[in-house]
Each structure stands twice: as C-alpha cells, then as structure tokens.
Computed example of a mutant assay.
Amino acid sequence: MNSYRSALTLMRIPFSVYLMPIFWFALSAVTGYAVWRAVAVFLILHLLAYPASNGYNSYYDRDEGSIGGLKQPPKVTRQLMHLVLLFDVLAVGLGMLLSPLFGALVTLYLLVSKAYSYEGIRLKKHPILSTFVVTFFQGAFTFVMVLVGIGFAPAEVLQLPYIGFALVSTLFLCGSYPLTQIYQHSEDRQRGDRTLSLILGIKGTYLFAAASLLLGTALLLYLYFTTDQVRNIYIFLICTAPVVYFFAGWVLRSQHDPREVNYENTMQMNKISSLSISTAFIIMMVVRAYL
C-alpha cells in the first residue's frame, strides 16, 4: 500500500489546479448548459485525465529533482503505471458515458500526452514540436473539449468568437509552458531533452512568456470589446494585476540574482496566475448570472 501511496503522490492531483483556467474560461464563454455536466467534465479532466498524464510523464522521466507540484518526488515504481492505466480507463469510460464525442476527445488527449514522454516517441526532445503540441492540446483543444463535454455541438464551437477564445487559451499556455521548464535546464540537458526554455535561455524564456501572454491578453480584450462584453475587460485586468506584479518582480530579481530562477518562484508564478485567471472567469460567470 505504501508503494501505491507514493505512486498516487506522483499523479500530482493538486497540480491540476494550474490547468483550471481553461475550464473556467470555456464556461464563462457560454450559457445554457447543465451544471451537472460541467461538474462531470471538471472531475473527469482534473481528477482523472490530468493526473494520468502527470503520472505517465513521471514514470518515463524518473525525475530526481523538483517537478511541477513536487519539490522532492518519490521514487518511481511499477505501481505508478497501474494507477495511470486505472485513471486512463476511468477517464475514457466516464467520458464516453457523458458523450461519445467527449470520450473520444479525452482519449486523444491522453494518447498525445503519452507521446510527450514515451521513450519511443518522446516529443519532449523536440522543443518546437513539443511546445506546439502541449500548448494546443492543453489550450485550444481543451477549451473545445470542455464545451463539447457540457453539450455543445462542434458546429457551434468551431466559429467566432469561440474559436478566437480557443486561440487565446493556446497563447496563454505558450506564455506559461516555458516558465515551467526554466529551473530544470541542468536536468533536461543531462537527459538529452532540448526544451524550449533550454534553447531560449533564461532571458529568452522570460521574453517569450511575456510576449505570448501579452498577445493572448490583447486578443482576449479585443474579442470582449467586439462582442459587447466590455465589463469583462475590467474584470480580467483587475484580477490579473497580481500576475503582472509578481512576474515583473521575478524577472527583475533574477537579473540581479540567478538563484531566483528556482522551483519555488516557478510554482508561485503558476499558482498566482492560475488562481487569478480562474477568479476572473468565475467572477464573469457570477456577474452575468446575477446582474
């Protein structure tokens, strides 16, 4: 049982909180869905699909240093793969019960996430391709997947402004994804994984993240403005001010002290951005419902 407890730790279920903004973003963009379906989609993605991907990644990476959500990860055992397969089956099975199309999308998401780490493919060794795959599937693809899960037809989702919102999701992921690699350059280099952050370097990673986040924000605000959702512009800017403040401070501190580029600051950046952006979209939903 202790082996399974350690394996469950490597599934990093709490780390799923960092992927919540896309879920809330999708819900904030639409109306007329059943709450129970939204809850089901949330549980399938955040308690099953995302942890299964995390566990599979840990199984093949066998990290000895800090990883997302775990400063000191336990050793990998075969029990981890048992849990990964169990979570995979539950995610796909429950997804199929909710909607065959949603179940198919969950299946595709899980397969692609495995290609990221599987030693026979290991997209992680290809910085540009892996960045595109990760940001597309965790961003735009997930945005569409959530809308399909709560009952919207693909024909409804694949049109403006939803397709524009999906692009915003990917741009936001483009900003956050290389930041999750910024403190792992040494370990990635030893494993032979050429991550985007490793290629860009510390300063380049910060600049790339800032440009992607700025472009995503500009597109989001434009879409809100052109769809008469000006109120959402103010909500988003106010709620994400802590993200700008922390990111700017982190960049400035790291210029004077390279030790600031560490696990703790990376996780703090992820936490602040995830909670701030999620809060913005939740407030939009509440305001829309009651005002």
Rank of each mutant, 00 (worst) to 15 (best):
Trp36Asn: 13
Val76Gly: 06
Phe247Ala: 15
Glu260Thr: 12
Gly204Ile: 05
Gly151Pro: 01
Phe23Glu: 04
Lys114Asp: 06
Tyr177Gln: 08
Val287Ser: 12
Phe102Gln: 00
Tyr116Thr: 05
Gln184Phe: 03
Ala38Leu: 07
Leu275Gln: 13
Leu252Cys: 02
Gln190Ala: 14
Arg189Pro: 00
Leu213Glu: 02
Pro161Thr: 01
Leu252Phe: 09
Ser254Pro: 02
Ala140Val: 05
His185Ser: 03
Asn54Met: 06
Tyr177Leu: 11
Leu252Met: 08
Leu97Thr: 07
Ala40Glu: 07
Ala115Asp: 13
Lys271Ser: 05
Asn2Pro: 10
Ala155Lys: 07
Asn54Ile: 03
Met269Arg: 13
Lys71Tyr: 10
Ala40Leu: 14
Ala211Trp: 09
Gly192Thr: 08
Ser113Tyr: 00
Met20Cys: 08
Thr266Trp: 13
Gln229Ala: 09
Phe23Ile: 05
Leu160Trp: 10
Tyr290Pro: 00
Leu47Gln: 04
Val41Ser: 02
Phe141Cys: 00
Gln184Pro: 09
Gln268Asp: 05
Asn265Ala: 14
Tyr162Ala: 01
Gly216Asp: 10
Phe143His: 00
Asn262Lys: 15
Val244Gln: 10
Ala211Tyr: 04
His126Val: 07
Thr227Leu: 04
Leu27Ala: 12
Leu147Val: 03
Asn265Ile: 14
Tyr33Asp: 02
Thr227Gly: 03
Tyr33Glu: 03
Leu215Val: 14
Met1Asp: 12
Val106Lys: 03
Val30Asp: 05
Asn54Thr: 01
Thr227Glu: 09
Leu105Tyr: 10
Ala115Arg: 11
Leu179Asp: 04
Ala40His: 09
Ser113Asp: 07
Trp250Val: 00
Gly139Tyr: 09
His126Pro: 14
Asn54Ser: 12
Glu156Asp: 14
Tyr245Thr: 04
Ile238Arg: 11
Arg37His: 15
Ala166Gly: 08
Phe152Leu: 11
Arg78Thr: 06
Ser117Arg: 08
Leu97Ile: 08
Val17Thr: 09
Ile121Thr: 11
Leu220Cys: 00
Ala209Ile: 01
Lys125Met: 10
Asp61Trp: 08
Val35Ser: 11
Asp228Ile: 12
Ala218His: 05
Pro74Gln: 05
Val76Ile: 13
Phe172Ala: 13
Leu27Met: 11
Tyr177Pro: 00
Tyr206Lys: 05
Leu160Thr: 13
Ala153Gln: 04
Ala166Glu: 00
Leu90Met: 05
Asn57Thr: 04
Gly93Arg: 10
Glu260Lys: 10
Ala91Leu: 01
Gly151Ser: 11
Leu48Gln: 08
Ala153Leu: 01
Phe281His: 12
Val89Glu: 09
